[in-house]
Simulated assay, not measured.
Amino acid sequence: MRLPAAVALTLAFAIGTVATAPAATRAGAPAPQCLDARAMDEVRQSSDRTLAVVQNDGRRFRVDLQEDCPAAAADAQASVLAREGWVCGTGNEYVRSGQRLCPVAAVAEIDTKTYAELALASHRRHGDVATLDAVEVRAEKRRGFGGSVQYCLNPRYMRGWNEDGKGLVVEVSPQRSGGNRYYRVELAYSCPELFDATTIELRSGMGISAVCGNPGDTVVAVPEMREGQGIARSGGVLSRISCPIASVYPIDK
């Protein structure tokens, strides 16, 4: 899959004179937390010293740099330098951007929520739009989907939902959502009206078909009308309660 120039890092796998080992003889990861630079699918930069990476196997990582490297994700020619492509935060690992070598300070595997927070921060910082699957991206762009399945969902493909006290769990079409079936939609504050809601809508505050936790993104709930209760009306229609969305992220498989 080709990454967009705004967020892509072209991969390189040698330091100094250390040659890249053939695939058949490549050593395994030195430690469980190591990032495989050969398997990066999506790279985002949430701050001058922080990168968020998704591997093609779905694992997510935070990469911290020792110094500011603000142009790393914006440089289409940037590269990752590490012995045999393993980035572990143990030294002699760099992100190269132009003539600069930015040392890697630490690498840690993160969950979907943390990745979504970093990716959304990157989106707000750079205004980039991530690509999805090569075939599905084209279809989604025609429908106006702006965002990544790593931190957004498209309400068009919502199949069901439930409220579990922590917010919403939304079921979507996996085929249209990068293989993800369930998303957590966290709210900015408690919204007890969801308990009685018979119908909900997910609405983007930015006028796009993606709900990502951007300002203005809301869950609109229609409470169930119970016997003995009056119908709350505004302009002759049943009242709707809007609950601000704080974050959206896929639930780990």
Rank of each mutant, 00 (worst) to 15 (best):
P22Y: 02
P22V: 08
A23W: 07
A24Q: 08
T25E: 12
T25P: 00
T25R: 03
R26V: 01
A29L: 09
P30V: 01
P30F: 00
A31Y: 07
Q33C: 04
C34L: 06
L35Y: 08
D36H: 07
R38E: 07
M40D: 02
D41K: 11
R44P: 07
Q45L: 06
S47A: 15
D48A: 15
T50G: 04
A52F: 07
V54G: 04
Q55V: 08
Q55T: 15
N56Q: 10
D57Y: 13
G58D: 08
F61V: 02
R62K: 14
V63K: 01
L65R: 07
L65T: 15
Q66F: 00
Q66S: 15
E67D: 11
E67C: 10
P70G: 12
A72G: 05
A72H: 05
A74C: 03
A76Y: 01
A78C: 10
S79Q: 13
V80S: 11
L81G: 14
A82G: 06
A82V: 12
R83Y: 05
W86I: 02
V87E: 03
V87W: 04
V87H: 01
G91F: 00
G91E: 09
E93D: 06
E93S: 01
E93A: 06
Y94T: 09
Y94D: 04
V95P: 02
R96A: 14
S97E: 05
S97C: 06
G98S: 04
R100D: 12
R100N: 10
L101I: 05
C102W: 01
C102R: 07
P103G: 13
V104P: 13
A105T: 07
A106T: 15
V107A: 00
A108R: 13
A108N: 10
A108K: 05
A108P: 09
E109T: 12
D111K: 05
D111I: 00
T114A: 14
Y115N: 00
A116W: 11
E117F: 04
E117C: 02
L118A: 00
L120C: 02
S122C: 10
S122H: 14
H123W: 05
H123T: 15
R124Y: 04
R124E: 08
R124K: 10
R125H: 12
R125M: 00
H126K: 14
G127W: 03
G127P: 12
G127Q: 10
G127S: 01
